[in-house]
């Protein structure tokens, strides 16, 4: 049986985030929390492997108590077990501290059942760094496979896996051994609908809560703000441009007149644009 761990994060639905126009602070009130959309591709891929070979899926998240909702949602899609790693000591974690905590928790999970594959999303929509996956892989000594667009084959007996990895200008076909950590590319699959039995199971499931100690972390200097080498020194709004567009108008305002006026003005002030245009073969 394959044991898969999927790392998911609960994030604010950034499409609905608003910034206070005066104070430049984020107005979080009323912004719904969702599973990081990129993580759904990771979860779906894990579910597909389970469908094919049988297996057990543990979803894990590090976050505030409310993040339990994201885990429950993952169970409704078909995950088997859910662990919420939550402790005040984790507050302020950057990617290095986050990967430390997640890696440590995954080691604890392994004590019950060895882990074959860890899945992560490509990136989060709030952190947006794509660093936590590589970080967890390095800390656990797992083979790292990023930007995976498809899993071609899994050979459980030989413990081999063949994947397609997106790279510049093409796709690399890679063969590696499990255990490994895969970060799934967006658009690589489509999340299934939750089934009624899974929804009922999700409602009833007890999400395990692990604090720092349960997650196997002794050294508090490795987590939270203390364990984070990066510090945010300033948050500010982008400076508005002061020069507005020159609006092209003509007497009649006919489209062909406007087009001609634009070309004349633009080529007059920016001759290099005309040169660029004229580079085309005749």
């Amino acid at each position: 049986m394959i044991h898969i761990v999927v790392c998911i994060k609960q994030v604010p639905d950034s499409a609905q985030i608003r910034v206070h126009p005066v104070t430049n602070t984020i107005m979080r009130q009323g912004v719904p929390a969702i599973i990081n959309p990129y993580d759904l591709f990771a979860l779906e891929e894990a579910l597909r492997i389970k469908d094919k070979f049988g297996g057990f899926i543990t979803v894990i998240t590090m976050g505030p108590p409310q993040a339990e909702n994201a885990l429950r949602k993952a169970v409704s899609f078909g995950a088997d077990d859910a662990i919420l790693v939550t402790d005040r000591a984790f507050a302020g974690a950057d990617t290095l501290a986050t990967s430390f905590a997640l890696a440590s928790a995954i080691r604890q999970i392994e004590k019950d059942m060895p882990v074959d594959i860890v899945f992560c999303g490509k990136q989060t929509i709030d952190g947006d760094t794509a660093q936590v996956g590589p970080g967890v892989a390095k800390r656990l000594g797992l083979e790292l496979l990023t930007y995976i667009s498809s899993i071609q084959s899994v050979d459980i007996d030989r413990r081999e896996i063949v994947v397609q990895r997106r790279s510049e200008g093409g796709v690399q076909v890679l063969k590696t051994r499990v255990p490994c950590l895969i970060t799934m590319l967006e658009g690589s699959n489509e999340m299934r609908f939750a089934t009624m039995p899974n929804m009922i199971r999700a409602a009833r499931t007890t999400v395990k809560r692990w604090d720092r100690v349960a997650a196997g972390i002794e050294d508090v200097t490795k987590i939270g703000l203390k364990g984070s080498p990066t510090v945010v020194s300033k948050v500010f709004a982008p400076s508005p441009k002061t020069v507005k567009a020159e609006i092209i108008t003509t007497n009649r305002g006919a489209p062909d007149e406007i087009a001609a006026a634009l070309l004349m003005k633009m080529f007059g002030r920016y001759p290099h644009v005309r040169e660029e245009l004229h580079k085309q073969p005749v």
Binding site: V231, V232, S233, V235, A237
Partner: peptide, 11 residues
């Protein structure tokens, strides 16, 4: 935060 703000980060 979805591009609405910028932040400066130091190590």
């Amino acid at each position: 935060f979805g591009g609405s703000l910028l932040c400066t980060i130091q190590t």
